[in-house]
Simulated scan of single mutants.
Amino acid sequence: MTDRGTGTDTATDPVPDEAPKLKEYDGEGITVTFEPRRCLHAAECVHGLPSVFDLAKRPWVRPDEAAPELVAEVVRRCPSGALRYHLADDTAEPPDSPTTVRRMPDGRLVVRGDLLVRSDRGERHETRAVLCGCGASGNQPYCDHSGPCAGGDFDRADAR
């Protein structure tokens, strides 16, 4: 595992011009990256593949505990995009097509597809994101559970 970027692991880090902090977990056939401030604790990873994603162990992501294709499938379930992957041949996650946008009852926007997200930090290409619907997030435009639009937790059915 290696850390890339700068910043802290807190979801409320207010510094707008910081590069996102990515934790990288290398496996034989797949590398999983994790951006802590984007995680909304939908738990798709730990429920989907507990042998790879185990919060009680360090490192908590162990990509070699399952086939790379299975790890990739579970990572794609992460609604926020906090988890991402690329395969050993540098193949990145393909975006959903067509792109979808779904407003949650609490106002958050769950977006999947070929995305270009613009913010004060610049532009980022994404395949999955949960965007703030109330404007109170300290991680704009992403939801960070700090505002009224993030009053509820993700239901596993809502995450997809």
Rank of each mutant, 00 (worst) to 15 (best):
M1S: 14
M1I: 14
M1T: 10
T2L: 14
T2Y: 08
D3H: 15
D3Y: 15
R4W: 15
G5H: 11
G5S: 13
T6L: 11
T6I: 15
T6M: 13
G7E: 11
G7R: 10
T8S: 14
D9Y: 15
T10C: 04
A11P: 00
A11K: 08
A11N: 08
D13L: 07
P14R: 07
V15G: 02
D17N: 13
E18W: 05
E18D: 14
A19K: 13
P20I: 01
K21R: 15
K21S: 02
L22M: 13
L22S: 06
K23F: 11
E24T: 11
G27F: 08
G27L: 03
G29F: 09
I30W: 09
I30V: 11
I30Q: 06
V32P: 00
V32I: 01
V32S: 01
F34G: 00
E35T: 12
E35K: 04
R37Y: 07
R38P: 01
C39F: 01
C39R: 06
C39T: 06
H41N: 10
H41Y: 10
A42E: 09
A43I: 02
E44S: 11
E44Q: 15
C45G: 01
H47P: 03
H47V: 05
H47K: 13
H47Y: 13
G48A: 07
G48W: 01
S51V: 07
D54M: 03
K57G: 03
K57Q: 14
R58Y: 12
R58Q: 15
V61R: 05
R62M: 03
P63T: 04
P63S: 05
D64I: 03
D64T: 10
E65W: 03
A67P: 12
V71W: 00
E73Y: 07
V74G: 01
V75C: 05
V75I: 09
R77W: 04
S80W: 02
S80K: 02
G81K: 07
A82I: 00
L83I: 02
R84I: 00
R84Q: 05
H86C: 01
L87N: 10
L87G: 09
D89Y: 08
D90K: 14
T91I: 05
T91S: 13
A92I: 02
A92R: 05
E93F: 01
E93P: 05
E93Q: 09
P94E: 04
P95H: 02
S97I: 02
T99L: 09
T100Q: 10
R102K: 15
R102Q: 15
R102H: 11
R103M: 12
M104N: 07
M104I: 07
L109T: 09
V110C: 12
V111C: 09
G113H: 07
G113W: 09
D114S: 10
L115N: 10
L115Q: 10
L115E: 06
V117G: 06
R118P: 07
S119Q: 03
S119I: 00
R121G: 12
